[in-house]
Design a protein around this nucleic acid. Structure first.
Lengths: 218, 218
DNA sequence: CGCCTAGTTGAGGTAAGTCAATTCACGTGG
DNA sequence: CCACGTGAATTGACTTACCTCAACTAGGCG
């Protein structure tokens, strides 16, 4: 897998890696920094699909698609490695196990999008934001960047709003409520879990969809 | 691919094919009838992730996952073929092209979930339902079960509500409005596009994410 | 120092939810 | 054949969660 990463690149924060509608067949692995993928609406609003943190694959969704149906933007400065798709395809042919692992990674990504869908479709704003902060925490903990105490989080309240299908104003109110209830504090680019267990219960957070076990290989 | 389908089965309507939390590693291809996959919330509400219609793969998302993170339920009586996952994996090793095609299918499924996410996160109820009816129409047209005139749709307003993140009462009101505006009629298990172009414009429907071209093979 | 972006708070509006009553279609048993 | 039960659709009255607009504060930086 390492041999596939032939080109390392660095991007500034707030830059577009891929524009919506563009057809770049490039896959990245995030080394440091945060990235988000999103879809723009004709009316100018945008929906953030998910965030990528160090260790995540980027652009898997549109590797096989003729047009990229969503944009990708850096949240912070970001270091990534490029993977040429045709190289990856060749590797699949030689090492089917890599194909299966990549497939697992795609399944995990989709499971997160599905949970995101449930989040927006069926949870109130407060539970939704709480659930989201917990999910980020669990993901970052896997790569050593977080714990049940908290984690560094470079997102603005606007990012949060675009991700949660809420207005930035309402996100602010929700964060205040969560803080005043003594569950979680989001401030100065840092998330602090003031009471992890109560928060997890409140948000009905069940991390099993993150499937921390890894792929079930035959 | 045909040789993989070793076992044909039939299910009555309203039956669970897979329970949420179960760990069945079975993949199905739908031959006739409609199926939906959903997630239940602890409070009893449910979010339908998507519907499967004839020609669709079923259960791809949880093939590599240790636990199935969502349930699958028949909407109508349904005929499916079983695919044993270990057979599929063996086939991947022998025919990488099949792996790529399956991967494309998974990407398409995810693109639909993403569009669904945008639908719920950023569109008003009326546009949302309109967009959804158009997407179903486009998918059914691909397999010869629909056209720009309309299609048979066995869903109840409760299904629609669970899929759209709305209440059944509100779905009813929205359908009435769309009908009275002369855009689309949903009645007696049939969708009639009274004015397809106006509806598509109203819902800002862009079917490119359905990627009707098929996988980009090397 | 002044500008810009992010965050904060209040007031008032609106889309969608809940509860409840009614109708309708359909099947089933007396 | 009709009485009855059941699930779906329909509609009204009222409530609420979230949005919009708007004003203001606090930091970072040329």
């Amino acid at each position: 897998m390492d041999r596939l990463q032939n080109h390392s690149r660095k991007f500034a924060s707030g830059k577009n890696l891929v524009f919506q509608g563009q057809s770049d067949q490039i896959l990245y692995i995030v080394h440091s920094g945060w990235v988000c993928s999103y879809k723009l609406q004709p009316d100018g609003s945008r929906q953030i699909i998910d965030f990528q943190v160090p260790g995540d694959l980027l652009g898997l969704r549109n590797v096989l698609f003729n047009i990229c149906d969503h944009g990708i933007e850096t949240v912070t400065t970001v270091k990534v490695s490029e993977i040429i798709v045709s190289d990856l395809m060749d590797t699949f042919k030689k090492y089917p196990r890599i194909a299966i692992a990549t497939f697992w990674s795609a399944s995990r990504e989709e499971a997160m999008v599905v949970e995101h869908l449930v989040d927006i479709g069926r949870r109130g704003a407060t539970e939704r934001v709480a659930h989201f902060l917990l999910e980020l925490g669990a993901r970052l903990t896997l790569v050593g960047l977080g714990s049940k105490v908290g984690y560094d989080c470079p997102l603005t309240q606007f990012h949060l709003a675009d991700a949660m299908g809420l207005s930035a104003v309402h996100v602010n109110r929700v964060l205040r409520q969560l803080r005043e209830d003594g569950m979680v504090t989001f401030r100065n680019s840092h998330v602090t879990f003031d009471n992890y267990d109560r928060l997890a219960e409140f948000a009905e957070f069940d991390p099993s969809y993150l499937d921390q076990e890894g792929p079930l290989l035959q």
